[in-house]
């Protein structure tokens, strides 16, 4: 039974990892941005499977509720609001020099994070070897709400700041739209030739 469980867990990990990597690659490389946004949503919901493997049921639920339900919906909505984002000529970089610089920075970041992932002796630096497999949410709630409540309030303040900033930027956007209508050099401030002609005819 124990051997079957380990085998099943490893097979599930490899399946989920392959799915996540394929979906992440498609989200970055698919030429149609609408499909890319949908692939990102699917990737975010498959990542929740890893949290189930890692004994974190609440984080799996929160991943599906916030990432799949909220963030990917916001990205799909942004694609609908910005029709120029669907321009497929945006997928080709203009100069090969800029692309080479991007690949260089990517390889530097990947080397640094590869040292952290593969060469750094993580298991030796741990305090204890045994693994805590408790899944009760009470400990997590006690950590978050009981002993570290200041983090929760700081998160609330950050989200309040983001909301206020979003609304202020939308107000600036409206003021910029009003400018051609009622501004000093706006379209309507000038005398309309066709309109004045009809007025003269009436008189």
């Amino acid at each position: 039974m124990q051997g079957f469980e380990t085998l099943f867990e490893q097979v599930e990990f490899i399946l989920l990892a392959g799915l996540v990597l394929i979906l992440a690659y498609l989200a970055l490389e698919h030429e149609d941005i609408v499909y890319a946004a949908f692939f990102f949503g699917m990737m975010a919901s498959v990542v929740a499977g890893f949290y189930l493997l890692l004994e974190a049921p609440f984080i799996a639920g929160m991943q599906i509720a916030v990432y799949t339900g909220g963030i990917s919906a916001l990205i799909i909505f942004g694609v609908l609001l910005l029709p120029r984002a669907q321009d497929s000529t945006l997928e080709v970089f203009p100069t090969s020099r800029a692309k080479r610089i991007g690949v260089l920075i990517t390889s530097v970041v990947m080397i640094l994070s590869g040292i952290l992932a593969l060469l750094f002796p993580w298991p030796e630096s741990f305090v204890s070897e045994n693994i805590n497999l408790s899944q009760n949410l009470e400990e997590l709630a006690k950590w978050l709400w009981g002993s570290h409540g200041i983090y929760v309030q700081m998160t609330a303040l950050i989200i309040l700041t983001a909301l206020v900033g979003a609304v202020v930027i939308m107000k600036m956007e409206k003021a910029e739209r009003l400018e051609p209508i009622k501004g000093e050099f706006g379209i309507e401030a000038e005398t309309h030739p066709a309109y004045t002609e009809t007025q003269e005819e009436e008189q």
């Binding site: 609440f58 909220g70 949410l137």
Partner: peptide, 21 residues
């Protein structure tokens, strides 16, 4: 954006309500 914010609020309160704290 309002939906997203209420989503986050719900997730935090879900932790509080589903645990026997």
């Amino acid at each position: 954006i309002l939906f997203l914010v209420v989503d986050v609020l719900g997730a935090f309160l879900w932790l509080l309500s589903s645990s026997s704290l």
